[in-house]
Design a protein around this nucleic acid. Structure first.
Lengths: 333, 333
DNA sequence: CTGAAAGCGCTTACAG
DNA sequence: CTGAAAGCGCTTACAG
């Protein structure tokens, strides 16, 4: 496959490079006749403008990046893929170049976000999945650049954010449990290194303190993982902890807890009602099926892309956009 | 954030652009002293070579692309993400630039693979998920370029391929069913528009014809999807089709079939034994848990990346590398 | 409406 | 060991 450049198109259609460029960039000051000829030749030659050259020379071409941290740590969690899908769906209808970048703690140490941005001439960036202990998290606190964070917010007024209202979502989940008549609740929250964790605690407390004094005391911290949840709940049961309703901050933890309860001889939802978070696919396949808080990750991705686009075009300042959540009631409560 | 270019580094460290470039490309003919100084300045300035410029000017820089078709059509299938992970894992340890490209039928019509390759100066490409009716499938038949296809093979000797041995895998799955004593089998195969389908049919037939005359007659074609599988199996049952063992060409179909059987009043594995294909996460969560053919998609991605790298470096010609599969026996047989 | 020329940020022979 | 210069494939004022 030999390369065909703008020069080839120019010479074989008998016009200058400038003109070819204008045609491909939709400038109006080209005669219809010329335009047509150029397009025809380009098509015959199989010409497509080189992205690197465009990115180098153009002042207006925008390239946006989606940075995903810790991809695929857990099988069964398709969230990153869904976010990616949403982001692509949005940017496919724009003229932006799209760059995807998967990172992790190690890579973050080697290359700062600023450098990545420079390297790829990024004009706007979406980022998801950071732990509060990671380098990029630190960097985001002070950076000034068109960035939209997904599921994380910072004090930094330069950053846009998109997420569900985690406080409200946790409040709603807890309230759902209470409405069903469960009164002795437990909240199996995620890792404190995740930003959403604290907010979910607050939501739980806000709802539950209508019934108990120190609602905080009924919160356990885990790591979003099924196995850990299984271990923790098993322990609690052995220690004699009594509860009849459980709000877990991830579906995987809810599933782990469900297994622990079963193994201990308790039944869901008769002895203990459970509600999870995320609405991953597994929730429809467990027995009993799992009630949960649904947040549509594809919508979240689209929303993030939209916000970033608005920010880049100065249609709006950076701010926090909320994705609506919903409570899905299945058989576990 | 103001950009810092090679010129900035050159001038503030008092050397030429050439020298800075040499430092960053690991050339040996730079004095240790100069190298150190340049690196220090670059670090202070936050300099990182611009990828577009490098890609434009360098004759040696390799950029590889992963093209994924129809990402995320089905929730719960993490395969694309796992492949991506494997590919990244491999290329992270090389000096290749990595480009990710999500496509679909519509995009394929708009931009040929050749054009994509030109646009991004690609020197090697990985591709997954094509249907035989799609434009890129057609294009791949004749293209001559370093390409490794994942889960598809072509007569085109220029292309490398990586996959499990689908014929053998289907044979092994069927044999497993037979070994467990099931004798009246049914094969619920995927769509004929997927390439693996025919091979799996062959594997099924090869194993089953030891027991029946026209093993072909016991193959049904669906589309890998749970709902369709449910519908088809329900129909067959109503029509009076009798079988005590089912090999499904995807776990999702196996699950759909399982539900159809249950709804019809049959029990798995007592009345009908089921084995699926892929080992998606759901298999461990259904009741009964699902036996299946395991293929590790992350390994597949790594293997594909490895092969592509070898081909690009002329360490080997394009050929077919087989990923080992294994039979996972769970409660459904 | 068209094209010559400068420039984007690099790399790479090549001369010294 | 170092640097001047050409070139990668484009875009974009600018002159005509």
């Amino acid at each position: 496959m030999k390369k065909v450049s703008i020069n080839d198109v120019a010479s074989t259609s008998g016009v200058s490079r400038s003109t070819v460029s204008k045609v491909f960039n939709g400038y109006a000051d080209v005669s219809p006749k010329t335009r047509k000829k150029v397009l025809k030749v380009a098509d015959k030659l199989g010409y497509s403008p080189n992205a690197a050259a465009r990115s180098l020379s153009s002042k207006t071409l925008r390239t946006v990046a989606l940075v995903l941290n810790n991809i695929n740590v857990t099988r069964g969690v398709t969230r990153p893929l869904e976010i990616l899908k949403g982001v692509l769906t949005y940017f496919d209808q724009t003229d932006c170049e799209f760059v995807f970048y998967a990172t992790d703690s190690k890579k973050q140490k080697e290359k700062s976000l600023r450098r990545f941005i420079q390297e790829h001439n990024i004009s706007g960036l979406l980022i998801h999945g950071l732990d509060i202990s990671e380098p990029y998290y630190e960097e985001l606190k002070t950076i000034n650049f068109p960035i939209v964070t997904i599921d994380m917010h910072f004090d930094n007024p330069n950053l846009g954010t998109v997420s569900v209202d985690d406080r409200k979502a946790a409040f709603d989940a807890t309230t759902t449990l209470l409405d069903k008549g469960y009164r002795k609740l437990l909240c199996l929250n995620g890792s404190l290194s995740a930003q959403v964790t604290e907010e979910r605690s607050e939501g739980f407390v806000k709802a539950y303190r209508q019934y108990v004094e120190n609602a905080e005391d009924y919160i356990l911290y885990a790591d979003f993982d099924e196995t850990t949840a299984y271990r923790i709940i098993s322990q609690e049961l052995k220690r004699g902890r009594e509860f009849d309703g459980l709000f877990a901050a991830s579906d995987l933890m809810a599933i782990g807890a469900m297994r622990a309860l079963e193994d201990y001889g308790l039944r869901v939802p008769d002895d203990v009602g459970i509600i999870g978070f995320d609405d991953i696919i597994l929730t429809s396949y467990t027995k009993p099926t799992l009630s949960t808080v649904r947040q549509d990750a594809t919508d979240l991705g689209m929303m993030a892309a939209q916000l970033l686009d608005d920010v880049m075009l100065h249609k709006t300042g950076a701010h926090h956009r909320i994705l609506p959540h919903s409570i899905i009631v299945r058989d576990s409560i």
